[in-house]
Design a protein around this nucleic acid. Structure first.
Length: 419
RNA sequence: GGAGAGAUGGCUGAGCGGUUGAAAGCACCGGUCUUGAAAACCGGCAAAGGGGCAACUCUUUCCUGGGUUCGAAUCCCAGUCUCUCCGCCA
């Protein structure tokens, strides 16, 4: 969320920056409501001041007047609150401003490749898709999941279940032991306000699974990514500058409705309602966001390198970035069956955008209170990594060679086959 | 599920109708001392919002929402959360 006070000062610049994103915001309403809101505040404050003076004087002859002022304040208050909530609706639906590094563009076609690694594998046979491979091995069962749960779920069985678990452990070990992240095993549910903090609400409510709980203790949602719960670890806090940067990693299931993607990736486990993901989150001093983004992206890249998976790094254009991001790198892994790269990680700096929503701050050396910077990135999406291994390491007979780095996590198993 | 206790600044913790935005301690920042550091001593230090170029000033905030009162951190009601004990349970 943007700080209104800052926004007011550089309004034209703000307006121009935000137009790089394909969103439609009523700036006139925003300005008008802001003005009205402040007028009401001024009226209210001068009356409150008057009342306070009477109360302090303890002059009984003025008590009646004070009562009258109270009712007047109440009337203004109601109006002001209404204006303020209208203002908040507009404000909370405005996305972050793209950083100046970010290329201008409309959609994914305008993203720019930054680098490419390794060679894509060549096969002397026609490579199969991950779901063919998995079903032939009898280790991915989509039909069973449809029967028990519905579409976009899967049963992962046998050695592939082991592979899934191994990937999670492997990635966590790299990030905790080599990359300096603290491992967290967080709740998989979040309150409405927590979801607001990272920007999933109010705008993207349709993508979230809401839980039906009869108690009146606030709405609860399944997390669509561990970013939500890890980033909110500093919600409503003023942390010490010495405690920054904070780096957290968690491997969790993620739950998404995928509401806008009917008919997209319906086959296989590319796009599921539930999937595992290892998530990296950094809380940093606000000026260190972009450095941290490079660092974080490299941490994710390290996993791909160790697994020897071919990938490329792209920078997202302004129109393709997520709501809270100021700058995003996607890592895309090569999928032989599709003959193209597919997203396996997305690393974003959110500048102070989420921090303002969460009220997450720190004291700097001058004792000023500043908003923290927040970053999140996948390191990596487990499901898609599993897919990438199946497809890139497949053999002619349908067996899968296990990448060397993973074997210690799989009881030294070297190959997955039906035998 | 039953029975109690509590929620105050970055943290610990006093206050229980009127200079209390809030004692004290810790942490943090500045200074004296020291070759440097520590210790000791002195000083500073809540947040949000409004007005002002600024110095500054005003308002709100002691879990949340209502209520009583000229006046509420303090009294009343409702809710949320936390802790302790009992029961149940992975």
């Amino acid at each position: 969320m943007h700080n209104l006070k800052v926004l007011r000062k550089n309004f034209e610049h703000f307006k121009k920056s935000i137009e790089k994103r394909t969103v439609d915001i009523n700036f006139d309403d925003l300005l008008r409501l802001d003005k009205e809101n402040r007028e009401f505040i001024q009226k209210k404050e001068s009356l409150e001041n008057e009342k306070k003076i009477i109360s302090k004087s303890k002059d009984k002859s003025l008590f009646e007047k004070s009562k009258k002022i109270s009712t007047e304040i109440e009337e203004i208050n109601i109006k002001q609150k209404k204006i303020k909530s209208e203002l908040d609706v507009i404000l909370s639906n405005i996305p972050n401003i793209p950083h100046e590094d970010v290329p201008n563009g409309k959609d994914e076609n305008d993203n720019i490749e930054v680098s490419k690694s390794g060679n894509t594998p060549t096969f002397d046979f026609k490579p199969k898709s991950h779901y063919e491979l998995g079903e032939n091995l009898e280790m991915l069962d989509f039909d069973l999941a449809t029967k028990t749960t519905g579409s976009r779920f899967v049963f992962v069985k046998n050695k592939l279940a082991l592979l899934e678990r191994a990937l999670s452990n492997f990635m966590l070990d790299i990030h905790t032991l080599q990359n300096g992240y603290q491992e967290i095993s967080p709740p998989l549910m979040a309150l409405e306000n927590t979801m607001f903090g990272t920007g999933q609400l109010p705008k993207f409510e349709n993508d979230q699974f809401e839980l039906k709980i009869d108690k009146g203790s606030g709405r609860k949602f399944l997390i669509p990514t561990a970013e939500v719960i890890l980033t909110n670890m500093v919600k409503d806090k003023i942390v010490n500058q010495n405690d920054l940067p904070m780096r957290f990693v968690a491997s969790t299931p993620c739950f998404r409705k995928e509401a806008g993607s009917y008919g997209k990736d319906t086959k296989g486990m590319i796009r599921q309602h539930q999937f595992y993901k290892v998530e990296l989150v950094s809380i940093v001093e606000q000026d260190n966001c972009l450095d941290e983004l490079e660092r974080m992206t490299n941490c994710a890249i390290k996993i791909l390198d160790l697994l020897k998976l071919p990938y490329r790094k792209i920078i997202l254009c302004s129109g393709d970035m997520g709501f809270s991001a100021e700058k995003t790198y996607d890592l895309e892994v090569w999928l032989p069956s599709e003959n193209r790269y597919r997203e396996i990680s997305s690393c974003s700096s959110c500048s102070t955008f989420q921090a303002v929503r969460m009220k997450a701050r720190y004291k700097d050396r001058k004792n000023d209170t500043l908003y923290v910077g927040t970053l999140n990135g996948s390191g990596l999406a487990i499901g898609r990594t599993l897919i990438a291994i199946l497809e890139n390491y497949q053999q002619k007979d349908g067996s899968i060679i296990i990448p060397k780095a993973l074997r210690p996590y799989m009881n030294d198993l070297e190959i997955i086959s039906t035998k």
